[in-house]
Simulated scan of single mutants.
Amino acid sequence: MTPRTFLVHGLVAGLVAGIAAFLIAYVVAEPQIDTAIALEEAASAAPAGHTHAEGTPAHSHDEEEAGHSHGQEAEVSRDTQSTWGLATGTILFGTVIGGATALAAAFALGRLGSLGARGSTATITLVGFVATALVPFLKYPSTPPAVGSGDTIGERTGLYFAFWAISLAAAVIAVVAARRLHERIGGFNAMVVAALGYLVVVLAVGLALPTVNELGAFPADTLWYFRRESLVTLAGLWAVLGVVLTGLVGRDADKALADQRRREAAAAL
C-alpha cells in the first residue's frame, strides 16, 4: 500500500463525509442559522416613525431601501447559501480533511506498535477529530449570525487558528511520544502518558489564551442549539470519514495480505 493509495482513499472518504456533513447541517444546523438571522434582522430594524434632529429632513424606509437596492441584488441569496453554498463548503472541507488524514494514516502505518492498517487508520482519524475539531471547538465554539462584532472578526479568527495549530502540534508530539514509550512502559501506559501530556498542554494554552465574550443579549437557548448542531455536524463528518477510510484501507490491507500468502504458498511448492 502506497501513500498514493491512501490519498485516493482519503479523497473518496472525504467526499462521502462532506456530503454526509451537508445533509446533517442542512437538517439540524440551518434552522438555527435561520433563527439567528431573524433575530439579527429584528434587532437591526429601526422602529417605524422615528424622527431626526430638528432641521434634518426626514426620509422614508422605502426611499432608503430603494437607494440601497443595488447592494442587495449583489448579495448571495439565503437559499443559495443554505443549499449549494453549504454543499460546496462541506464537500471541499471534507475532501481536504480526508486527503490530509489519509496521508497521516499512511505515515503512521507500521509505526503505532502492533496496530494494523485498520487500527492505525482509525486511531489517526480519532486523533485528528479530537485535535483539530473537538478541542478547538471547546475553547472557541462557533457562533451564529448576530453574535460578535465585525471589528474583532480578524482577532477571533487568529485566536482560533492559533489554538488549532497548537492542538494539532501537541497531538502529533503525543503520538510520537506514545510510540517511543511503547516498548519501555507498555502500550496502555504509553497511551495514558501521551494523552495526559496532550491534555496538560492544551489546558495550559487554553487558559493562557484570551476568551471571547461578545454574546450581548443573544438568546442562550438559540446559541446552545446552534453550537450543539455545529458540533454534531463536525462529529458526523469525522465519523463518516473514519468509517469509510478505515474500511477502504482495511480492504486493501486484506487483499495485500491474501496476495502475500498466495505467493508464499506458491514458493513453498
Rank of each mutant, 00 (worst) to 15 (best):
A146N: 14
L126N: 04
I153Q: 13
I97A: 14
G128T: 02
V130L: 07
P144H: 12
S120H: 10
L134W: 07
G158W: 00
T95G: 12
I97Q: 10
T157H: 13
A146P: 01
V130G: 00
D151N: 12
G98L: 07
F107Q: 14
F107W: 13
G99V: 00
P144S: 13
A122V: 06
F93S: 14
P144C: 14
K139M: 12
A106P: 00
S142C: 04
A108C: 12
S114V: 05
F137N: 10
S149E: 15
T152F: 05
G158E: 12
I124W: 10
L109T: 02
L103R: 04
T95M: 15
F93L: 15
A108L: 13
A122F: 15
V96K: 06
G110N: 09
G158F: 07
I97P: 01
L109H: 07
T121I: 08
G150C: 11
V127A: 13
S142W: 02
P144V: 10
G94Q: 08
G158K: 07
A146S: 15
K139Q: 13
G116H: 07
A131T: 03
P136A: 14
R111I: 08
F93I: 03
I124D: 02
T152H: 11
L103D: 10
V127R: 01
R156L: 05
T121Y: 09
T123K: 05
T157F: 12
